[in-house]
Every structure is written in structure tokens, then in C-alpha cells.
Design a protein around this nucleic acid. Structure first.
Lengths: 190, 190
DNA sequence: ACCTGAACACCGTTCAAGT
DNA sequence: ACCTGAACACCGTTCAAGT
């Protein structure tokens, strides 16, 4: 058990996640969170001693959520193309929801400025995504080697992150849709 | 004339560009620049009234440099595949050079936190890159419509930015090379 | 023309003190 | 167990003052 979904710790994390997805880890402010949820910034340090602890908890929970989503797709036993449509759909949703970015994507951009404990969680998100994409690709029975499948999975993940990053700059989901469609027409994405 | 390459204004910009490419716009600090180049932070405001002015000047010069590079490639009248190799080479160089990122890519991630004058310059970088990539693709005489060429150019730019973002997270240029090779094998990049 | 010190309201962090 | 006020060294910005 990790506690009720409305305990202070989770309320802090919810406010913080929104801030990071909109403006990045560096723009995350304890004082701003405090003002938003009606608590003093010093109190947040009781739940998360440092900003790095909060960032790491955020990235960790984000990956856990992704893994849970991957699990539901696995259980549904969908074909690769349908799986990929649902996958790109999550990145699309983030853009629709106030032009937000993937938490790991925006943090990867700030990589060199991240405390080690945050960096480790961001890397885990990439690993788990690539691992899952590799499994989906393996379901296509193309006779490609594991190494080739992993390369393609990494390329797919990179391409989607890039599409989100650029589309976000334009503030236009249509740009994202157009780019994903192009990836698909080139068979980069099944 | 934009003045000598070693005047104070340019020295500030050089130090600032390195900081942004390594740690993002938010991590850019007037006081840190001051310490590095031996000047008081208040003095920097004489050259760049606000942080937004500095960021916009940085992005503007970055785009101008890119345009100059595009010009030399055009003059060399290379075939598309060779052009693209030189193009991806720039992004590769940034990673080799202290794991840095494309200035526009890292700033795009912080998009919502950027002053309007900076945002405008970051968008211009994307526009000019897509415009140039469209021209290169047009040189292939594939009979695709202008609209289709532009879509592919946007997809190429997005995919390369994403490859750089993810490879940077791993701190491994080999990851970038592998992903670009995959893009090429799928004919996303000529 | 270019630089500076001092002040302002911000920031994360610490810590003794409250309940 | 959880929260707070006050202090610390940071930040961008402003401005009167120096050369």
C-alpha cells in the first residue's frame, strides 16, 4: 500500500507533475507548489527532503503508470499495429492536455542538470519503453534478430519523442499527427 | 557589421550558448556567466537588458549559423544522401562535444517557460530547417507533392531531434548512430 | 560607453520551534 | 506525525553612482 490517493504526499506529486510536464524540472518550485495546494514550502521538505527526491518520485511513478498501461495492452492481446496506435495515443493525449510533454522527454532535455537520483528514473522510463516496443515488434514475426528489433524499438521511441517535442513547439497536435502518419507510411512504426 | 568576434557582447553569448546547450534555458544564469568571464552580473544587463533578450539573441545567431551552413551545402551541389549525411553530422558533433544538444531542441522542451521573443526565434530555427530539408528532398525528383515533401521534411527533423534527445540521455553517441542508421534503412532519411 | 554595489523579490534548503 | 517562521546563499532585475 502506498497510502490514500489524496494524502498530502500524493497531492504534492500531482501538482508537481503538471508543472514539470508543462515547464520542465528546472521550473519546478517548492514555493509555487506550496501556494497552489495551501501549504508552506518548508512543509514539502517533510515529505520530499530535496527537489531531487520529488523529481525522482515523480519519474518513478510515471514509469509505473506506463508499465501498468503496457500490461493492459498485453492482456488485450492486440496486434502490433493496434498496440502502436494506442501507444502513440498517449503522447497525443499529453499534447491535447494543455500542450504537455512526456515527463521523461522533457527531463531528458535537462539531463545534465538533473540530480543522479532523477536521472536514473528517467533512464528507466526509456528502458522500459524500448523493452515493451521490442516485444510488440517481435509479435510481427518478421524474422529480424533481437538486436535489430531493439534498434527499431529505440528508433521508434526516439522518433515519437521528437515528434512530440517539435509539435509542442508549434502548439499544434496536427503537426504530431502528420509526423506520426509519415513514420507509419515509411513503416518505421507498424 | 556585427562587431569584433571578441567584444564583450559576443563573449557573453559564447559562454551563454554553451550553458544552454548543456543545461537548458532555465539553467542559464547571469551570475554564472559573470563569474566565468570576469564581469559583474549587473554589467551583462547593459548588453542584454533581460534574460529573454540574451536567449533570443542566442537562438537568432544559432539559426544564422545554420543558414550559413545550409548555404555552403547548396553551393557544393551535393546529392541528397550526401547532404543528409552532413546534416545529421552536425547533431552528432553536438553530442560528441560534451554531450550537448541542439540549442533549439533543448529550448523547445522548455517551450512553455520561454519568453515570447525567445520562442519566436526557436520556431524560426525549425521553420528554416524544414524549409531546407524540403528543398533537399525535392532534389530527389520522386514526383511527390510539395505538401508530401514538407511532411517528410518535418518528420525527418522531428526524428533527428528525438534521436539526439534520447541518445543524450544515454550519454552514448553510438545510440544516436544506431538510430540514424535505422531511419536510413527505413528510407525515412535519404 | 561601459561597469559596479546595493537593494528588491524570488529560489531551495536547514533547523529550531510549535501542535 | 506533520507543519511553520526565520535564516542562509542563491537568482534576475533595477538603478543610482562611478569611470
Amino acid at each position: 500500500m502506498t497510502g490514500s490517493t489524496t494524502d498530502t504526499r500524493q497531492i504534492i506529486m500531482n501538482a508537481a507533475r503538471v508543472m514539470v510536464q508543462a515547464r520542465g524540472y528546472n521550473a519546478l518550485s517548492f514555493r509555487e507548489i506550496g501556494k497552489e495546494i495551501g501549504i508552506k514550502s518548508a512543509s514539502i521538505h517533510y515529505h520530499f527532503p530535496t527537489k531531487g527526491d520529488l523529481g525522482a518520485a515523480l519519474a518513478h511513478q510515471y514509469t509505473e503508470d506506463a508499465l501498468a498501461f503496457f500490461g493492459t495492452l498485453k492482456d488485450a492481446a492486440l496486434e502490433p499495429a493496434t498496440c502502436m496506435e494506442k501507444y502513440t495515443g498517449i503522447f497525443r493525449e499529453a499534447l491535447l492536455n494543455n500542450n504537455r510533454m512526456c515527463l521523461a522527454g522533457i527531463m531528458a532535455a535537462e539531463h545534465d542538470d538533473l540530480p543522479p537520483e532523477v536521472r536514473v528514473e528517467v533512464d528507466r522510463f526509456t528502458d522500459e519503453n524500448v523493452r515493451w516496443l521490442t516485444e510488440v515488434l517481435a509479435g510481427k514475426k518478421t524474422g529480424l534478430s533481437d538486436e535489430q528489433l531493439r534498434s527499431q524499438a529505440l528508433a521508434i521511441f526516439s522518433a515519437i519523442e521528437g515528434a512530440q517535442l517539435v509539435a509542442r513547439g508549434r502548439g499544434d497536435v496536427a503537426v504530431f499527427d502528420q509526423t506520426i502518419a509519415t513514420y507509419r507510411s515509411m513503416s518505421l512504426i507498424p
